[in-house]
Design a binder for these strands. Structure first.
Length: 704
RNA sequence: GCGCCCGUAGCUCAAUUGGCUAGAGCGUCGGGCUUCGAACCCGAAGGUUGCAGGUUCGAGCCCUGCCGGGCGCACCA
């Protein structure tokens, strides 16, 4: 039997170890990385098996080591600390890995033993009232990479996008267009469609604020006063509550004990607690007195804030022309008013065309797109079926209720609303609709939703509901939940605060990258500088968004992401470009070796230096990295793989001996056999880096 | 108040899912270009893994209780 890939080498090792212990198969054994490169390539730990056999791990390790000693496949075997470390014969290792890369080609990285399943991945989820922002960027890049990785692992993959194209926020842009910019269009203003509509949306917010202030300046002021007069008691109580909280926090910081838990208190502690309470109250009185000015200010501020919020709500609901018009638009939209529908369709098309341009620029794509304006209707049908089958029930006021178990076993069941009492749909209705439609259409095995961690509860509930509808399906639904993106200036969140729109952000990074290129290659034509800057900038953004595990909050420091020194996209791109420069030189001097079966058979892999063998071993780990990414639903393992390989390559490339002479010359290598080997190795690294970066959605360069 | 997540080197993050001596990047300090791209590389210092218990042959990882932070707990999306 010939060894065709690294996995077979691993299995051979495991099987031999199992046989040495008198077992039929390697169940209970698994390989891990050797402790370090000095001791070997791979290891097997015998701790858990020893426990099972009531034996000593080191004893088993020694037993296996002695069985491997005469085997020509291994050039070093060492039993230590309950591990058996081995180093594979170099020709064997090289042939296995080179053969795998050559044979798999563009599929390198898949798991040959995998039983393929049908997977769906949903990501991006744009709104049609504004352009993509930096939060969408993490989502889209993460989702695209995840879907690449799922397919690379060997599964059948369908990529989905869900477009939020209906609701009150869309109507705001439409009202702004009708009232303040009728007739404007991307053609007339020269703006990208999504930017135009986003600007109209902001314009609505601005005009609504103006409307409110105008009203508040006159009639509104008395309204606020009246509100404050009638609600003085509760306002002051509220203000007092905040002050008290502040006082208690200060006390706690100072080390005062406040966390008396009545339920856990022993009876003899009661007098102690009462004394403590009395002391606390008197200290609070003193604190209030000494913070007199502060207190009045806070009370005034707090009261005003609450009054304003309440008045603003009432203003929106009862006074504002703009908000009334928006509600009117929504009602007419739902009633299929032709005029409103036409405007809606027209503006949506603008936004979608603009967003599509951003997708193209990012190099991401989808196989199917769902529109909420369509799936919410299917959601209603699904809810109807649930009702008919008795899975859900109607409330006294007509809302459809689904009973979910309480958060803890002790809690009562919670009532989840699936349909409002007026029959309109809520958030979960449409997700139910799209999920069932996709399930019926594709009969998928697993589905992954790429959505921010703030929606964990929503998906938990969605999956619980679907589990009741299709038993067993809930467990096959997954939420790829990720953390937020922050810029040095402040927090970035989809529905609050300053929105950093994606195109402008990408422009900034790409221009900074182009400036780097220009400073080093001033002679290049402007278009070429822009092209390289674009690739480097995108690589910087994507790698930075993929190199952390999904849960962590990403602080996006542009300078850090663009740094050539460090764990960055540009660094990986540079390693690959430098490698390709060598290969070009080799082609030019006619010393190139071809990466095919014959070429590899010709190279003498026994000449591999330890550094080179290490690189081969790293190359071989792509299937492992991909498998880990699928297991964790997190592509960062692949980003880690790419960086490690780039790092090892750069190290190898620049290594020098004691006199400062290059240790690993390629083109200049005097020995033809070593040169051929190194060229083969570089082709393997090139293919692996290209493959890894492609999975991350990062386009590479030949020159930087 | 309840639920989920997080707390690891000065900073930002890993740790093959309970295993060998807890590793990287940045920053700091020191070193390396007459030869394939120095847009790089090498070395050093830096740790009571938030605290206190527990389970285990073995805990950064599992359990309990605290402390600190993030997110969530709508007939919003």
């Amino acid at each position: 039997m010939s060894i065709e890939n690294f996995r077979m080498l691993e299995l051979e090792f495991l099987n031999t170890a199992a046989r040495a212990l008198g077992r039929n198969d390697p169940a209970g054994l698994k390989t891990s990385d050797a402790q370090n490169a000095d001791v070997g390539d791979l290891a097997i730990g015998f701790h858990s098996l020893a426990k099972e056999l009531k034996s000593d791990p080191q004893l088993l390790a020694v037993k296996v080591a002695s069985a491997l000693a005469g085997d020509g496949s291994y050039v070093a075997v060492k039993a230590e600390n309950g591990y058996c470390n081995v180093r594979f014969a170099r020709p064997l290792l090289f042939a296995a890995v080179a053969g795998e890369v050559a044979r798999e080609g563009a599929a390198f990285g898949r798991d040959p033993a995998l039983k393929p399943e049908k997977w769906l991945v949903e990501y991006s989820g744009p709104n049609t009232n504004k352009p993509l922002h930096i939060g969408h960027l993490r989502n889209t890049i993460l989702g695209f990479a995840m879907s690449n990785v799922v397919r690379a692992h060997g599964h059948e993959l369908t990529r989905y996008n869900i477009v939020n194209d209906r609701g009150i926020h869309i109507c705001k842009s439409m009202v702004a267009w009708s009232r303040f910019a009728p007739g404007s269009s991307p053609e007339s203003t020269g703006e990208k469609g999504d930017h135009l509509v986003g600007r109209l949306y902001s314009l609505f917010a601005k005009k609504a604020t103006e409307e409110f202030e105008q009203w508040a300046a006159g009639l509104g002021a008395t309204e606020i006063d009246a509100y404050r007069a009638t609600n003085r008691a509760s306002i002051e109580a509220g203000a007092d509550l905040t002050l008290r909280k502040r006082f208690l926090q200060e006390q706690e910081k100072a080390g005062r004990k406040l966390d008396w838990k009545p339920a856990k208190m022993k009876p003899q502690q009661y007098p102690e607690k009462m004394a403590a309470d009395a002391a606390l109250e008197s200290d609070y009185a003193v604190w209030l007195a000494t913070h007199g000015e502060d207190v009045t200010q806070a009370r005034r501020g707090e009261g005003l804030k609450r009054a304003q919020a309440a008045v603003a709500r009432r203003f929106e609901a009862e006074v504002s022309q703009l908000h009334a018009e928006t509600r009117d638009y929504l009602r007419r939209w739902e009633a299929n008013d032709p005029e409103i529908r036409a405007l809606w369709r027209r503006m949506n098309d603008w936004v979608l065309a603009g967003i599509e341009k951003t997708y193209q620029r990012l190099g991401v794509a989808f196989d199917f797109v769902d529109y909420e304006s369509e799936v919410y209707l299917q959601g209603k049908e699904i809810v109807g079926e649930l009702l008919a089958k008795g899975h859900a029930r109607k409330n006294s006021d007509g809302a459809v209720i689904f009973e979910l178990p309480g958060k803890t076993p002790a809690d009562p069941p919670q009532e989840k609303v699936l349909l409002r009492s007026d029959g309109t749909s809520v958030y979960i209705t449409q997700d139910l609709g799209s999920l069932m439609r996709r399930y019926q259409r594709h009969a998928f095995d697993e589905v992954v939703y790429v959505v921010g961690s703030e929606q964990e509860l929503h998906f938990e509930q969605l999956f619980a509901v679907i589990e009741r509808v299709v038993p067993g399906l809930g467990a096959r639904c997954h939420h790829l939940s990720y953390g937020m993106v922050e810029l040095p200036h402040g927090k970035m969140k989809s529905r609050e605060g300053e929105i950093i729109e994606a195109d402008g952000f990408l422009d900034t990074v790409e221009e900074a990258a182009a400036a780097q290129v220009r400073s080093r290659n001033a002679e290049l034509p402007a278009e070429e500088i822009a092209r390289r800057g674009g690739r480097i900038g995108l690589a910087a953004v994507k790698f930075h968004l993929l190199k952390f595990s999904k849960r962590s909050t990403v602080k996006f420091d542009v300078d850090e992401a663009l740094d050539m020194n460090g764990r960055t996209g540009p660094y990986c791109l540079y390693a690959l470009a430098r490698l390709r420069s060598i290969l070009r030189k080799a082609e030019a001097t006619g010393s190139a070796a071809r990466l095919d079966g014959a070429g590899n058979a010709a190279v003498d892999a026994s000449r591999l230096t330890p550094a080179e063998a290490g690189i081969v071993l790293t190359i071989a780990k792509l299937p492992t990295a991909i498998a880990a990414s699928v297991r964790d639903l997190d592509p960062y393992h692949v980003a880690d793989y790419v960086y490690r390989l780039a790092k090892e390559l750069n190290s190898w490339y620049t290594a020098v001996d004691a006199e400062g002479k290059t240790l690993h010359p390629v083109v200049n290598c005097q020995d033809p056999a070593t040169r051929a080997l190194r060229l083969s190795l570089l082709r393997l690294v090139e293919a692996s880096l290209e493959r890894g970066l492609t999975l991350l959605g990062i386009a590479t360069l030949h020159e930087m």
